[in-house]
Write a protein that binds this DNA or RNA. Structure first.
Length: 430
RNA sequence: UCCGGUGUAGCUCAGUUGGUUAGAGCAGUGGACUGUUAAUCCACGUGUCCGGGGUUCGAGUCCCUGCACCGGAGCCA
């Protein structure tokens, strides 16, 4: 007899097998019982017929509670009445632990309660599906860069100062000095790109912004490629190809999970290149035409972003923003000094900005000037400025927020379900 | 930080114009049922009505205040 996982069930039809798992649900109808078993790889219905098992087995079955841990032995049979098409005719089982008063019942619960029980909520079907898709997206991101000869170089989480100087940082004590949790690995990525040519880093980022919206976490994961000898147009192409690759992989490998989430698959299938590319200036014209009160030079708010994204089925690339509203390291457009060679990718359906990137400034004098304008401490950036002293080259990169991509692909209304243990302004537990 | 909302049983919620003993479904326990999919049916009980202050003969309900949480804005991925 073989120990198997539920996702292998088709290969063991008519065999006696053993499966280790937990009780997802159990029902009884007199002398026949239905036990839904969960093993981390799927759900499987087990049938317990009173006349076909020992009296002791049937009595023990009656005692089973939600989320008790058990090992089931029985025969695999094909049956269309079972979800998944297969079920097990239970012969016997071992109880490892009887669960008592499991808080998450098969009925509805509020988000706050579920988030407080996140360590248990992870076992639910929807949450399991979301995290499987998250895993697929992470794997696809790494595969994409690895296939294209990028090197993963990890960037530090403890940093001495602000990288971008805009967002609020988490401050911590570091052997008598102040340290800050990294909000981006980007500046280190530029150093790495000068060594490896094609670099990416992928790790947690921290922002202490007091944002309480469905799009914000204080701890989130970002992937940041940085490419030497790469200009803005090529940068856009890398980002577009990455998104298309991710979507296709998820559609190919996690269709089952998308269906559990009742995601509209057609919306995802429409995502094909090339993505529309519109300049910031064109967006402002369009927004003004559509009645928005916005002037050239203003940053987009959430409603503006959504309005632009809603014009298209695909993600849309917005480029060449006013330099005043973007980070100091972005390169000025040689054809128009007022704008920088930056680009944002906005996801459809109101999911907002999922990618932000740019071609980087290569001229050390302009960088120093910009650092002064932003009132940053130049000595903090000495090492970064070194990159412009020793073989400076055109280079570009972008950051993609993992959780926003997961939220969009899964069609979730809130980002907190896209990460195993969300950290928000008001939640540090569990 | 600002704007709006919510807070009643383990969970999800109802609770009239202020009225006498605080209500339902689910979960739990016991029972019935050989094809259930959040099974169904019968029985069993649980409350710091978020805290504090006030108005009133009387407050879950009205007023003030504090707290917690939710959503949005700003900022951003």
């Amino acid at each position: 007899m073989q120990n198997i996982r539920i996702n292998q069930i088709k290969d063991f039809c008519d065999n006696i097998v053993k499966i280790n798992g937990w009780v997802y649900n159990s029902r009884r109808s007199g002398k026949i019982g239905f036990l839904t078993l969960r093993d981390g790889f799927g759900l499987l219905q087990c049938i317990v017929v009173k006349n076909e098992v020992s009296e002791e087995t049937f009595e023990n079955f009656k005692k089973l509670t939600q989320e008790s841990s058990i090992s089931v032995i029985g025969k695999v049979v094909k049956n269309d009445r079972a979800t998944g098409g297969y079920e097990i005719l239970l012969e016997s089982f071992d109880t490892h632990h009887l669960s008592k008063d499991y808080p998450i019942t098969p009925k509805e619960h509020g988000t706050e309660f579920l988030m407080s029980n996140r360590h248990l909520w992870l076992r639910s079907k929807r949450q399991h599906a979301i995290l499987k898709i998250r895993h697929q997206i992470i794997k696809s991101i790494r595969d994409y860069f690895d296939m294209n000869d990028f090197t993963l170089v990890d960037t530090p989480i403890f940093t001495p100062s602000a990288a971008e100087g805009t967002s609020t940082l988490f401050k911590t004590e570091y052997f008598g000095k102040d340290a800050f949790l990294a909000q981006t690995g980007q500046l280190y990525g530029e150093a790495s790109a000068m060594s490896f040519g094609r670099h990416y880093n992928f790790g947690p980022c921290f922002r202490a912004e007091k944002s309480k919206t469905r799009r914000h976490l204080t701890e989130f994961w970002m992937v940041e490629p940085e490419i030497a000898y790469c200009e803005i147009e090529e940068d856009m192409q890398w980002a577009e190809n990455l998104l298309i690759y991710i979507i296709n992989q998820v559609l190919d490998k996690r269709l089952n999970e998308l269906n559990i989430l009742e995601r509209d698959i057609d919306v995802l299938r429409k995502v094909k290149g090339p993505f529309p590319r519109v300049s910031y200036t064109e967006c402002i014209d369009q927004l003004q035409k559509d009645g928005f009160n916005i002037q050239w030079g203003d940053d987009f708010g959430s409603p503006e972003e959504t309005h632009i994204a809603n014009q298209y089925d695909c993600p849309v690339i917005v480029h060449r923003f006013p330099s005043d509203i973007k980070a100091f390291y972005m390169k000025r457009d040689p054809e128009n000094e007022k704008v920088v060679l930056g680009m944002d990718i906005l996801a459809p359906e109101g999911y907002g900005e999922i990618v932000g990137g740019s071609e980087r400034e290569t001229d050390i004098e302009i960088l120093i000037e910009r650092i002064k304008e932003e009132k940053l401490n130049q000595s903090d950036y000495d090492w970064f400025l070194d990159l412009r002293k020793y073989g400076s080259v055109p280079h570009s990169g972008f950051g993609m927020g993992l959780e926003r991509v997961v939220a969009w692909i899964c069609g979730l209304s809130h980002i907190r379900e896209t990460i195993p243990f969300a950290r928000t302004m008001t939640r540090l537990n569990p």
